[in-house]
Write a protein that binds this DNA or RNA. Structure first.
Lengths: 208, 208
DNA sequence: CTTTGTGAATGGATTCACAGCA
DNA sequence: TGCTGTGAATCCATTCACAAAG
């Protein structure tokens, strides 16, 4: 067994996929799966799957496979999906509203707790039961609600400002859905989600 | 200079970032940039930037840097951003509508050309000037419009069906925004955009 | 006999460091 | 001198292949 303390990011990403698949298997009433079946389910190779799990000690039975419920619970612990992650969403445009209502986030125990926008016309309206609040209040409100996670769905030009406000309110983890590069202090972590770039990558492969 | 024919995907992703930054520099009237300034702008290291470009031959002047307009045009050619990429969007839910209206796609020359949904109540409505059509018509319509690119924003449970219909209509490149694994024939390329996983990855790093 | 867990081998990608050009 | 372009070195990730476990 390897060291649990520094798991490669590609492994973490795949763990999230296994977690989802195991949940679906549970719903179907499947109690055991082996690595070959996981590969058939999600396209990640059996060897890769076993290697990923090897970071965390033995979890399967040779000749048999993996107990679905047990493995899923173990992954939940590793990814911290066994506790609710309350977050603020900054930017209630189309993308922000889509995220606010996205069911997949609940699967990973993320809970939208506050929603901000600068547009006065939007303030007071509700999305998925959460009221849109004035972005001017971000630092105070985030501190009041003890929110440490901010998700940015503002235009790229506003990303740094939104991030600064969130950090002023005590944020330490930021998911950046904008194409802009955001600068944060040492004790703060940013993860960029770069879906627009994926269009450009695809374009490179398009012929004729 | 290395071979142009097989560029690593991480390099392609970063090229899209450089392309965006160079566009912004152009707007600001900046004519030259060096690799250190690129690093300051987007956080990608100067060495990485130069290595990325080295796949395509010499583009800068020692002691000076890079000519913004020229480099940007060169990247556009590499990524095929110098031609319009017409695409079909399948799934007019919140995420689909957000994408349909997302300005960033125009920056990469992507043009929404058809929009499909299974929900009879949505059919006929317009999003960003494009009428929502019945998903039953996907194969015929895509062939009629000669669309080779499909973007999937349906629920995961519908992803395979949507992909099959698009391929029946002649699609060869698919961007999959669903969390589901999609199987396609050999001559077809899929790129998965896995933003929900990013929440789980972030959660792993969240303390207390 | 089947399938795991993991060292060893391979294959990439990033970083270093410097020769060479402007 | 300042900055590029690139081999060499390093670091990381994936795949292979097999001994050990049930």
């Amino acid at each position: 067994m390897a060291d649990d303390s520094r798991v490669p990011i590609p492994t973490l990403t795949r763990l999230a996929t296994y977690y989802k698949i195991l949940g679906e298997a549970q719903v179907r009433g499947v109690h055991n799966l082996n690595s070959a079946q996981i590969e058939a389910e999600c396209g990640i190779s059996a060897a890769q799957f076993r290697k990923d799990l090897s970071h965390f000690g033995e979890m399967g039975k040779p000749g048999v496979g993996y107990e679905v419920a047990k493995l899923r619970a173990r992954i939940a612990t590793i990814l911290h999906l066994d506790r609710t992650q309350r977050f603020a969403l900054i930017g209630a445009g189309r993308l922000g509203q889509a995220l606010a209502a996205y069911p997949g986030l609940n699967d990973y125990s993320f809970e939208l707790t506050a929603l901000f926008d600068t547009d006065k016309k939007k303030i007071g309206r509700r999305v998925n039961g959460i009221e849109i609040e004035d972005a001017d209040g971000i630092p105070n409100r985030m501190r009041e609600l003890n929110l440490k996670i901010a998700v940015l769905t503002v235009p790229g030009s506003e990303a740094q400002k939104a991030s600064d406000a969130a950090i002023k309110g005590g944020a330490r983890w930021i998911l950046n859905f904008t194409p802009a590069h955001v600068r944060v202090p040492e004790n703060c972590m940013v993860r960029d989600i770069v879906f627009t770039q994926e269009f450009a990558v695809l374009a490179h492969y398009i012929e004729e």
